[in-house]
Design a protein around this nucleic acid. Structure first.
Length: 601
DNA sequence: TCTATATCACCC
DNA sequence: AAACGGGTGATATAGA
């Protein structure tokens, strides 16, 4: 990629039609057809699935001098994967480049291929036809000759619109950084194909008995209140209840009752009779499993939605992706027999990035100490130099909260509330941060002023935002940390895939990997090397560390207080399942009796 | 009955 | 006007 000579480069445009096997979301992909156009020779390759599956490599060059041009690389690369083809060396993802070009700008036509074409005033097929064709692809075989011809024609129309789009975007493209963004598509395809191992029987059982489990939880508590109807908390019913009980409840400006967790917590302290209801609401809010996308082989696979946020983070659906669910649901993540998984995250990544980007010596020193929060307290002179996490927990926590608060631009009011300290103390802590990390703040002010002046902000690798009018200063100041963190994650993923790591998923500042029980420790070491290398690349020689949590079969992914609720759910599940099984047995016996008597007769 | 908006809960 | 960054999604209510 580094030696790419653009003048000598050949461009090939490619698009696949595909669907999940058997039409079940979460399953591996089944390729239906492909159209590729070689700009150099003017030649088309139009191939149907039976031909494609017989090929061990693409019918066009994917060497170092060829750039493959696509719209949404992870999809096409997942098709490469499904066909067992080696990944191309150079990928230009026009979706990503269009996102980058228009990041921060409102797009009335959206960011799909059609939207991008309309943005540049280019011809596009109708959205209706696109939907029809997508449905046809999703339906699966058998296809009539007419349908085959239609699908291929549609596939070609997408390819044919890629070259004018490329020409329209050419003057904005930033090589070779655009190719780095494109290359991430190959790592994504690996992850979307491998997926996350799930305890499938338990998952299926929980889904099957979900309503009963929920009902049991509600029934135990709501009999005293009567505020649930068909498993749903009703504001009107609750209003009746508090009137009966003569409870004055805080309201929103709209007149509605304030029903958030904080208000409930406060009111439950004032009126202890409400405590069980509060705890029920708390549990039920966390009780969401509905749409998790698990394939028939027990792997959680879904689109990882790269470059979706303004900082270029992945934003997969929070219901389809297991890491988007409540933490307790991670108990469903379980390596297969003989295997292990590891969750590896950068230590205090945003603090480290802030230190690296601003080059603040004190901040770097604090990061390198291994405990930035305690180091900050020491640098402020609040604790002695030999203080430890154990010797000064209260001080450490205050300085920790202060560090976290400044990363998001929190003000003294919110910090005071969080610390349960007077506003004066919060203001004092924030001032200390400004004083101790003066170079960071000078840098941050500088970034802010420059951005205001030229209306544009970008990472070292060229992810940029045209600053919208309504972007608040806190977002703007946080952008360099979060967007460079996203760059770092992408680079780390690319490096890991190159080194043969079985990469399951990205989680913003972390990855999940898989290996056999025997090799997991070695694989974790390699993955951590990749993560360190990625930090060195993004932060120009400032290394970030990482922490790894290894889970071997039959262990589950449960951490930080997630276990109690998992256990509660499983206990109720076992109970409900036992009752259901008993019912089933009884009815089976009833069914069998006449048949049995008939036979013996 | 459907859609838009507000509010809330969850993730890093 | 508010004052904690980036998100997705469920649900309830109001209004057509």
């Amino acid at each position: 990629m580094k030696d790419l000579n653009l003048d000598r480069c050949k461009f090939t445009f490619v698009d696949f039609e595909f669907r999940p096997q058997e039409g079940i979301e979460g399953n591996l992909l089944e390729v239906i057809c492909m159209v590729a156009y070689d700009l150099h020779t003017g030649k088309y390759h139009k191939l149907w699935k039976d031909e494609l599956y017989g090929m061990s490599s693409p019918p066009f060059a994917v060497d170092a001098d060829t750039v493959l041009v696509v719209y949404f690389a992870s999809a096409e690369m997942a098709c490469f994967q499904a066909l067992g083809w080696a990944m191309p060396e150079n990928i230009l993802d026009l979706f990503v480049e269009f996102r980058n070009l228009t990041n921060g700008i409102f797009l009335p036509e959206g960011k799909s291929l059609l939207g991008a074409l309309k943005y540049f005033g280019l011809d596009a097929i109708s959205a209706e036809h696109k939907d029809d064709m997508r449905d046809l692809a999703l339906r699966g075989a058998p296809y009539s000759d007419l349908e085959k011809a239609e699908l291929l024609k549609y596939c070609q129309s997408d390819v044919d619109s890629l070259s004018p789009l490329y020409l329209a975007m050419k003057k904005y493209l930033d090589f070779p950084r655009a190719l780095l963004r494109g290359l991430y598509g190959t790592a994504l395809a690996r992850m979307e194909t491998l997926g996350i191992p799930i305890d499938y029987p338990t998952y299926k059982g929980l889904c099957l008995h979900w309503d009963a489990i929920k009902a049991k939880l509600i029934a135990e508590v709501d009999s005293a209140y009567g505020v649930y109807e068909e498993g749903v908390f009703k504001e009107a019913a609750f209003e009746r209840y508090i009137r009966q009980q003569n409870i004055r409840w805080p309201r929103l400006e709209s007149g509605h009752l304030k029903l958030d967790e904080d208000t409930f917590k406060l009111m439950a302290q004032l009126y202890p009779i409400l405590a069980p209801l509060r705890s029920l609401r708390d549990s039920l809010a966390k009780l969401r499993l509905n749409a998790l996308q698990v394939g028939s082989d027990g792997r959680n696979r879904c689109m990882l939605s790269p470059y979706q946020s303004i900082t270029s983070r992945n934003q997969p659906s929070t219901t389809k992706f297991v890491f988007g669910l409540s933490r307790w649901a991670r108990g469903l993540i379980q390596p297969r027999e003989g295997y292990a998984i590891a969750y590896i995250d950068w230590s205090q990544q945003e603090f480290g990035i802030a230190a690296g980007l601003s080059n603040d010596p004190k901040m770097k020193e604090a990061y390198l100490s291994g405990d930035p929060y305690l180091a900050f307290a020491k640098q402020a002179g609040a604790v002695p130099h030999d203080a430890t996490k154990k010797s000064h927990p209260a001080e450490r926590d205050q300085y920790k909260q202060c560090v976290l608060a400044t990363q998001y631009g929190m003000g003294p009011d919110s910090l005071a509330q969080r610390l349960k300290q007077p506003k004066l103390r919060a203001r004092q802590l924030l001032d200390i941060h400004r004083r101790v990390y003066k170079q960071f703040w000078d840098w941050s002010d500088n970034v802010y002023n420059n951005t205001i002046n030229n209306n544009r902000l970008n990472t070292l690798f060229g992810w940029q935002i045209t600053v919208p009018q309504d972007l608040n200063p806190r977002s703007l100041r946080n952008f360099p940390m979060q967007a460079n963190a996203a760059e770092m994650l992408r680079i780390a993923c690319i490096l890991m895939v190159r080194r043969g790591i079985q990469l399951c998923a990205p989680i913003h500042d972390a990855v999940l990997i898989e290996a056999t029980e025997e090799t997991i420790e070695d694989q974790v070491k390699i993955a951590q090397e990749c993560m360190e290398q990625a930090s060195l690349i993004v932060l120009e020689d400032f290394a970030l560390g990482s922490d790894a949590k290894i889970i071997k079969y039959p262990g589950r992914f449960l951490e930080d207080g997630a276990e109690p609720f998992w256990n509660t759910v499983i206990a109720i599940y076992e109970q409900v399942k036992a009752e259901a099984d008993e019912k089933l047995n009884t009815s089976l016996l009833l069914d069998l009796t006449p048949a049995h008597s008939y036979i013996s007769y």
